[in-house]
Design a protein around this nucleic acid. Structure first.
Length: 102
DNA sequence: TTTGTGACCTGGA
DNA sequence: ATCCAGGCCACAA
């Protein structure tokens, strides 16, 4: 059996898919919005079942994602119009406020 | 079952 | 600015 409920996975997927272009969200915010106990679960879900989602719009709270992804994240985010300063996303400008209704 | 690893977060030195 | 420790939970071997 899967430790993570399908409902939780779908909830996270919906949140990630709902992130507007030009904005980003953090693992911690997504975890909190999805009602998960820990941000790591979001990371696990992404790795397992979010390959078809705009994972590039999901970053860490520091604005600096994992090294292997950072290069690609920043490039694509930059194309979407996300403000980037010296290889780190300016969360203050592009952080997406999560709404349960969207 | 236990152990190690990870697309994390926070806080302290 | 950097490095380390603790907490968190799930997945692969």
């Amino acid at each position: 059996m899967s430790a993570i409920s399908d409902d939780d996975v779908e909830r996270v997927r919906a949140l990630v898919a709902a992130i507007p272009r030009g904005q980003v969200s953090t693992y911690g915010d997504l975890a909190a919005a999805a009602g998960l106990s820990s941000p790591r679960i979001v990371g696990t879900i992404m790795r397992t079942d979010a390959a078809d989602l705009p994972w590039h719009r999901v970053i860490s709270a520091s604005g600096t994602p994992a090294p292997h992804l950072a290069r690609r994240q920043l490039a694509r985010l930059h194309e979407e119009g996300v403000p980037i300063r010296d290889d780190r996303v300016v969360l203050r400008e592009c952080r997406w406020e999560i709404d349960a209704d969207t």
